[in-house]
Write a protein that binds this DNA or RNA. Structure first.
Lengths: 149, 149
DNA sequence: AGAAATGTAACCAAATCGGTTACTATCTGT
DNA sequence: ACAGATAGTAACCGATTTGGTTACATTTCT
């Protein structure tokens, strides 16, 4: 899987911790261990999804556009992972035209994965960015997250 | 995601339906809509995992090495998807050496994904190859699966 | 004006994936 | 013994994806 989901969550949690103070892509990239352009690319997606808001120019950066408590990890996953419908891409076995087995197999697997996928979705939907941030706070009592890195 | 998991399940269900009769990679490939070499590659993995047994030469093919009721989809997934531990590869954000945030973020996300991953695993473990085969039988009453395709 | 920052296109190297060819090894049947 | 059928496996290829990087236009603040 990609790193996009993890990086996006990382960025959002950082923004939540910044409490409305704009954060530059350079700072976020440094924290997430990637390149500022990668951050801005992801931000573009998150902006389209309505999660963040950016300001150009000196002193600019990105802030959350919604309360962190109202952004779930499922929201983030959906925004960032364009191929969300097939969280498990069961299909893509090229069904044999000569027989229905291929197609039926695909339907069958999809049916049997339904519960698994729903369980995963529910688990992701149960966690908010705010919770991630708070969990981070517990593990980083020194406050490094808000300062330099 | 790959097609490997779907194809492997396809093959195993087919073998379960064949009831001990060896099935050639050509037949399986035709049914799954792929190439015989792809089937044999996957079979090699499934053989290493102890799920199937193959016989070379004329009249050869592959048979199940275990009762279909004792092979779960989680088993198949683990065997075929080498990167199983990170069903969600949360990590691979390069933690910033300057600050612990990267590493802690990774730990935090992993911790919050634990339940989601476990839910998914449980759902996969609850389905056996035999159940897939039976479900296929319901949807293919004409018995095409056992005949030509 | 100049510095700082985003937005975005473009390119690249690496990895992955599935298909294909080619060859060897093995087994069965005559 | 020989021919045919089959698995096992290495090797290569093209397509796709991914993330990093450069480059440049745009915006905003001082």
């Amino acid at each position: 899987m990609n790193t996009r989901f993890a990086v996006a969550t990382h960025m959002l949690a950082y923004l939540a911790h910044a409490q409305g103070q704009p954060v530059s892509s350079e700072v976020l990239a440094s924290s997430a261990g990637t390149h500022p352009v990668v951050v801005r690319r992801l931000m573009s997606t998150l902006r389209d999804a309505g999660f963040v808001q950016s300001q150009r120019g000196a002193g600019g950066g990105t802030v959350l556009a919604r309360p962190a408590a109202e952004i779930t990890l499922l929201d983030v996953f959906r925004a960032v992972q364009e191929t969300e419908p097939d969280l498990f891409q069961v299909g893509s076995t090229n069904p044999n035209a000569h027989c229905d087995l291929g197609r039926v197999m695909q339907q069958t697997l999809e049916g049997m994965f339904g519960p698994a996928i729903e369980a995963m979705r529910a688990a992701l939907a149960a966690v908010t960015v705010q919770q991630v941030m708070q969990e981070l706070g517990k593990r980083l009592p020194n406050g490094c997250a808000g300062a330099s890195g």
